[in-house]
Design a protein around this nucleic acid. Structure first.
Length: 441
RNA sequence: GUGCCUAUGGUGUAAUGGCAGCACUAGAGCUUGUGGAGCUCUCAGUACGGGUUCGAACCCCGUUAGGCACCCCA
């Protein structure tokens, strides 16, 4: 007896094993349980964003590489080393989108949405791709829910409305302890000016600067401000603040945004060191964290104003402001708060049980009757024994079972069983749909 | 792209150089007409590739994947 087992294993072991094919690094399958939680998030997002007047837009997952190199920034990591190139038969250089704002603006320009009432409120839900090393809250394929206000004036009310919409969205998900971090990086001129001042300050501290910051001085001076190296903290603390270098229109714009947030009762924290990695931002930039995530610096939502983005892409200048939310990060936060997030409350379920081949056949048409009546009913016509099916009904959380056996088929009856009490009643088969409808109320 | 840690059935774990075991889950049966309990049986594993050794889940090297951190970002 045991020797049998050993033989079997030996044969198996000596056979070719092959390499198991797994999902690509940093990309994950969403199994049914998780899919329910996601669907719930999407539904809440849709409800909230549509309430604020956003209309849904879908753009291709693949775009011309230039769309991102020109807008997100040639020297950003996202463009420099994180884009997935797509091999195609054409000559175009296509990439998987690393974010969606540029796509939405591209679409706006391409389809002349400026002819419609301005501004346009657009939102999207979809996956984006960045080839970086995965870790908590960071994946190579990740989903974003974003919203953009495009066209019209560069009015601070829209900055505020974006922040309000996403704050409310997170609030609907029962996330607590949310922190809105906000800053203004001014217009192009302000920033040039500020960068100069910042670099001057850093040159004074030449010797204390860490290696990374030496590099940042050349590539992306604003990023100096969020260096984590201990040796740089003093330099950062003493560094000039962007807010002191804003032109008066930029200052006024920022002030208005804050006033609108006050009016909406949205608490916020001024973060003079908050800059964002994407080149296209100007004036307002912001991020939303939960208190826990703030330490880990994982933002749930990030966004800002980008009045120059459209100009980079086309001849037209289009004011714009928007934000994107990380679906995986938000789900993680929601589940931390409430582990049952997204699992539907026990619905009343009806389970159809059949006994014998005749009943099995009859079940097919009975199921159709229920579908036509839009009454949810489940069952497993592949199972045979009554015990098994009752057990399955129980595991499925059914409150009612319909039992159809040979005898019932002949007599055109069916048994209704209350799964809790075990009480059973035989009723005419024809009345099954009607009776179940009644009992589910 | 870099550094550190990790990898045993679907899940959680045991075996520390010498018989890969346990629990849960799943499937079947006890019981082709009444479930949740119990009992019996079954499926299923040392991530992949190499090396050291009489002998490797265990030691070494490489790869892949996961976690954490850097970089950067949702």
């Amino acid at each position: 007896m045991p020797s049998n087992k050993i033989n079997k294993k030996k044969i198996k072991k000596s056979g070719p094993k092959g390499k198991q094919i797994l999902s690509p690094k940093g990309m994950h399958d969403v199994l049914p349980e998780e899919a329910q939680a996601r669907d719930k998030l999407y539904k809440v997002a849709k409800d909230v964003l549509e309430f604020y007047g956003f209309g849904k837009i879908e753009t291709p997952i693949v775009e011309n590489a230039e769309l991102f190199s020109r807008t997100v920034g040639e020297s950003t990591d996202i463009v420099e080393k994180e884009m997935y190139a797509v091999r195609s038969r054409g000559k175009e250089h296509l990439v998987m989108r690393p974010e969606m704002t540029a796509s939405v603006v591209r679409s706006y320009l391409e389809h002349g949405l400026h002819r419609l009432p301005q501004p346009q409120f657009l939102y999207y839900i979809g996956p984006a791709f960045r080839h970086e090393n995965p870790q908590a809250g960071r994946y190579r394929q990740f989903w974003q829910i974003g919203a953009e206000v495009l066209g019209g004036e560069s009015d601070p009310i829209y900055d505020a409305q974006i922040i309000i919409a996403f704050s409310r969205l997170l609030g609907e998900l029962k996330l607590k302890n949310l922190i809105v971090g906000i800053n203004s990086i001014g217009g192009t001129a302000d920033r040039q000016n500020y960068k100069k001042k910042l670099l001057e300050h850093y040159r004074l501290h030449n010797k204390e600067i860490c290696k990374d910051c030496m590099r940042r001085m050349k590539t992306n001076p604003l990023r100096l401000l969020d260096c984590k190296s201990r040796s740089c903290q003093n330099i950062i603390d003493e560094a000039p603040s962007v807010l002191d270098h804003l032109s008066s229109p930029s200052k006024a714009h920022f002030k208005s945004v804050l006033e609108f947030l006050d009016e909406a009762g949205i608490p916020y924290v001024l973060k003079p060191r908050l800059v964002r990695g994407l080149d296209y931002y100007n004036k307002t930039v912001f991020e939303i964290f939960t208190e826990d995530d703030e330490k880990g610096e994982l933002s749930l939502v990030g966004g800002g104003r980008y009045d120059y983005l459209a100009e980079i892409l086309g001849r037209r200048s289009v004011a714009g402001v928007g934000a994107a939310m990380g679906v995986e990060r938000v789900l993680e936060a929601a589940k931390e708060r409430d582990p049952s997030f997204g699992t539907p409350r026990s619905k009343k379920r009806v389970y159809l049980i059949h006994i014998g081949d005749l009943a099995k056949r009859k079940s097919i048409s009975l199921l159709e009757e229920f579908r036509e009546a839009h009454l949810p009913i489940i069952g497993n016509l592949g199972k045979t024994s009554l015990s098994n099916q009752l057990e399955a009904a129980d595991k499925a959380g059914a409150t009612l079972a319909l039992i159809l056996g040979q005898k019932e088929v002949f007599e055109e009856d069916i048994i209704i069983r209350d799964m809790k009490t075990g009480a059973q009643e035989t009723i005419p088969l024809k009345k099954a749909v009607k009776e179940i409808k009644k009992r589910l109320k």
